[in-house]
Simulated assay, not measured.
Amino acid sequence: MEGEPDAELGAAEQMHNQREPVEDGWMLWQGGQVRNTLHLVSAVAQWILLLACLIYLGVHFLQPSTTQRDKVLWTHIRYSGRSTRGVAMNLTAELGHMQIRNGSIMIPCDGLYLVSLKSFIYLEEKEDWLRLTLQGTHKTSSSTLWQQMVHSNDTTVNLTTVLYLFGDDSITLWTSSNANISDLTLSLVLITENEC
């Protein structure tokens, strides 16, 4: 009987030794499950963050850009009235961002400008023709940018052109004879991306 407790101890020890690898395996398996769960949670969080970034960028790029529209420099002028020989027309802006000073359009920066001019001109009885001149002034010198002769039987003026203008220039419209100007529209739009 004395040998029985030793045998029981041996069997218990043997079972304990068999349990340790099983318990170690169980602990390793549980640790692996935790690691897998953490990897899964991390991957889901990264995908959600990536999706949120893509949605933000999509919304940002699909919105109309107001800042780009604000950068476009343009002016639109309407004029009806009487012109006087040798005197610049007193233009005032109806819409736009370009400043007008003393009837002259102030050019804010260098670049290509789309210029559109339309009008009906009715000459006085004594006048047979009129010269309509778009003049540019740079500091102290002036130059003719565009000119059209208007005869008494042809009263329509129509111009669409592109001009390179310099910053700090001014644009004025002159007539060589007295006349009545009807529905004159003058538009200038900066079409190049120059910094002002």
Rank of each mutant, 00 (worst) to 15 (best):
G81S: 04
T155P: 02
M1P: 07
G167W: 05
I77G: 01
T172C: 02
E125V: 06
T67C: 14
E20R: 10
T92H: 09
V115F: 03
V115T: 06
L114E: 12
L91N: 04
S65D: 14
R131Q: 11
P5V: 03
V115H: 05
D168C: 09
G136D: 11
D110N: 11
N194Q: 12
F61T: 07
Q147V: 06
T175Y: 02
A52D: 07
L163C: 08
N153H: 00
A179Q: 05
L112S: 15
S119Y: 15
L91A: 00
L134W: 15
W146M: 02
I77V: 11
L163V: 08
S141D: 13
I171V: 11
Y122W: 04
Q63A: 04
L132S: 14
S141R: 00
G25Q: 06
Q147E: 08
T66D: 07
N102A: 10
L73E: 15
T144W: 11
D169Q: 14
L117R: 11
H151G: 09
E127P: 07
T137K: 08
T92P: 08
L50C: 00
G3C: 00
K71Q: 02
E4N: 07
Q63L: 12
P5M: 09
K118Q: 00
R35H: 03
A179E: 06
S80W: 06
L50T: 08
S182M: 03
L123P: 01
S176R: 06
E13W: 06
W74M: 12
L28D: 05
S83F: 12
G3M: 15
L117H: 00
T161E: 07
H151E: 05
P5A: 10
R69M: 08
S152R: 12
L114H: 03
C53H: 12
S42Q: 09
R82S: 00
T140V: 10
T192K: 02
V189A: 02
S170D: 14
E195Y: 14
E13D: 06
D6P: 03
V157N: 10
W74A: 12
G31D: 03
C53Q: 09
D6R: 04
T67I: 11
W146F: 02
L134D: 05
L190T: 03
E124G: 04
E195P: 08
I121W: 02
E193W: 07
I181M: 01
S42V: 01
S177L: 07
R82N: 09
E20Q: 10
L9R: 14
A11T: 14
T133W: 00
L190Y: 10
T192L: 09
S142D: 01
S143C: 13
T140G: 10
Y113H: 07
V150C: 11
Q46I: 12
R131H: 03
R35Y: 13
G10I: 01
T140W: 11
N17F: 11
Y56K: 12
I100G: 07
S152W: 06
E125S: 05
W74T: 10
E195T: 15
S83M: 05
S182W: 00
W129M: 07
W26P: 01
Q18C: 10
N17H: 02
L134I: 13
S42M: 04
